[in-house]
Design a protein around this nucleic acid. Structure first.
Lengths: 194, 194
DNA sequence: TGAATTTGTCAACAGTCGTTGATATTCGGA
DNA sequence: TCCGAATATCAACGACTGTTGACAAATTCA
């Protein structure tokens, strides 16, 4: 009676959550190929067959593990002068805050050798980065500017979360904001040479 | 008598080269895990056992395939005002010129899920990017500045060669130089906020 | 020519992978 | 309490992996 779901209190809906958590952890560490269903099951202290029972295949499990909300309306920039600052702050909030971050790292780590993940990453930056950038400057030019912004953001993520390049890992959030913010500002608004 | 090697004219040294070529192509497309020895052998029209015969394991084959010279003394920047320009031009010459480029793409694509490749990438940017950056500005600060430069360069490479993000692929070399050059200049010299 | 060495072919090994079905265990409701 | 349904276990499948050794063909050198 203390259930929150209307129909299914479902005792071992908990198992499903355990599997998903284990899957996220291993996908983050080793990517799609590197994390086997048996490894995930072992980490969840459960039989490999249960993984298939609940999620129907490894692909579906991966899709669920890489799923995240990524609410976009948070970046509502009012003045053009601070758009670079707003983008990098939002980036940090997303990537360094827990829930969504793991989904992004999963995608990025698997994107290099998994076409589904790669397409998902392209989607994210086409539907999230581009609209924000498009709101400022020449709309016909938005694609190129968003591409440059994406290159810097993805590079930062790659160095900091995947490769763990020491000097990039050592950067504080404030340092990132102060250094990368103006660059994104330049890219997003099309300042400098064309 | 027309041999160039002193001792081994070695008729099927050619086979070894064929295997290496096939390996490079498949490693570039699918990364370390995605390219199997059987696939590589099939592409080289040869028996899988020969791959092991000539290179002793898949790891050694990968190491050989990802090997490239990357002659560093080319970037001798004379004046500080053009270091950003020099870095991005050198980057483009390396990545868009054939022989070394494939090695870099192989490394980058596999780095996300292969620790050997990841370490190699860290090495490249620690030994190639950092010294160039360190020559200008505060030496104590060189690590951070080189890290920022690396984040932009690796992001550009990821978007252009791995993810193939359409707007980034569409950029001409001149556009890249004009847009990214000043950013690298800013990062490398430590201009702007600290 | 014949012998020796290189080069290539074939089948199989032990292991891992995702996935499946039959079977056992546990649990909620009568 | 007992029964049916949900939940979990187990063994095995076919396919794939890197790697190995025994054997055949080709080439080289005398």
């Amino acid at each position: 009676m203390s259930t929150n779901q209307p129909k299914k209190p479902s005792k071992s809906e908990r198992t499903k959550a355990q599997i998903l958590e284990a899957a996220r952890e291993l996908f983050v560490q080793h990517g799609y190929d590197g994390a086997s269903i048996r490894d995930i099951a072992a980490r969840a202290s459960i039989d490999p067959a249960m993984v298939i029972r609940y999620f129907h295949s490894k692909d579906e499990l991966f899709a669920r593990a890489a799923l995240f909300d990524l609410r976009l309306p948070e970046t509502q920039v009012t003045d053009q002068a601070s758009i670079g600052d707003a983008i990098i702050r939002r980036f940090l909030r997303i990537w360094e805050g827990s829930p969504t971050a793991t989904g992004m790292v999963i995608l990025l780590r698997s994107a290099a050798s998994n076409e589904f993940a790669a397409e998902k990453v392209r989607d994210v930056f086409a539907n999230q980065v581009r609209p924000v950038v498009a709101a400022f400057g020449d709309p016909a030019d938005a694609g190129r500017r968003a591409g440059l912004v994406a290159s810097q953001l993805l590079g930062l993520a790659t160095c900091r979360y995947l490769l763990r390049l020491p000097p990039v890992v050592a950067l504080s959030q404030d340092e990132i904001i102060k250094n990368v913010g103006p660059v994104l500002q330049r890219y997003a608004t099309g300042a400098g040479e064309i």
